[in-house]
């Protein structure tokens, strides 16, 4: 994993070195971008450093809420799922082949201000304890929480040109962030309070959930 920042840095240096030779003819286009994809919706500013290299500074956000996505076998329950990912990112778009300007290598970093997922599981049956029918508060719920907040490198491919030929174009990103090692916990209430004892197992299960795949459509407007 430590090799990834070195690779990105080398790739930027290489790009700068190559394009420094043609600095006389340099154009530095600027475009604004709106995007939509698996990391939600976002906006960015694209700046052409050299013909083959552009930098992207932007933000993305994805607040998702869904019900009953998550089921536990043999346990009748409803679930409320939420995920909130907010990041600021700086990406470099490198076009390695002059004859194929539609193909880009993309690398960079994002800082995830917020990157958490929560699943609340609520037993859906009337819970009988002997001859007693328990209230919702007495039954309680279980929260599974995961937090990936922090710095995450990004590597991917870009398809179609970085900048519009005229004013407007669309391009595509396909890549992945490698997120921080997640911090996970389980919190229970009511008769489910004891489920916090399962935190260690949950943390172990979730520790390799660090790849955040990105498939993103970008709409660019050049000034």
């Amino acid at each position: 994993m430590k090799l990834l920042p070195v690779f990105i840095f080398s790739f930027l240096l290489n790009a700068l070195a190559v394009k420094g030779q043609g600095a006389d003819t340099l154009k530095r286009p600027i475009a604004v971008q709106l995007n939509v994809g698996t990391q939600g919706i976002g906006a960015a500013v694209n700046y052409g450093v050299y013909e083959k290299l552009a930098l992207r500074l932007g933000v993305n956000a994805i607040p998702i809420k869904a019900n009953d996505v998550f089921k536990i076998s043999g346990f009748n329950s409803t679930s409320h799922v939420s995920a909130d990912f907010y990041n600021i990112h700086l990406l470099a778009d490198y076009t390695p082949f002059k004859q194929q300007p539609w193909f880009r290598l993309v690398g960079g970093f994002a800082y995830f201000l917020k990157a958490n997922g929560n699943v609340r599981i609520i037993p859906s049956d009337d819970y009988k304890y002997g001859d007693l029918t328990l209230t919702e508060d007495q039954i309680g719920y279980v929260d599974l929480n995961v937090d990936w907040k922090g710095l995450a490198p990004y590597l991917g491919l870009g398809f179609l040109k970085t900048f519009p030929k005229r004013k407007f174009n669309i391009n595509l990103d396909l890549g992945t962030y490698y997120l921080n090692k997640p911090e996970a916990d389980i919190i229970g209430t009511g008769i489910l309070t004891g489920n916090s004892s399962q935190t260690e197992q949950f943390q172990s299960n979730i520790k390799n959930y660090r790849w955040l795949p990105i498939l993103q459509l970008n709409f660019n407007y050049k000034f």
Binding site: T38, Q39, I62, I64, A66, V69, I72, F75, V81, A83, F85, G117, V142, L144, L179, I186, G188, G190, I191, L192, T193, G194, N195, S197, Q198, Q201, F202, N205, I206, N208, Y209, R210, W211, L212, P213, L215
Partner: peptide
């Protein structure tokens, strides 16, 4: 979308070997 975002590439099911603890 949720499964794509949270369904990162990983082998282990998040709830594997997790018990439901009842007091």
């Amino acid at each position: 979308i949720f499964m794509m975002v949270l369904g990162f590439i990983a082998c282990k099911k998040p709830t594997e070997n997790i018990k439901i603890v009842v007091d």
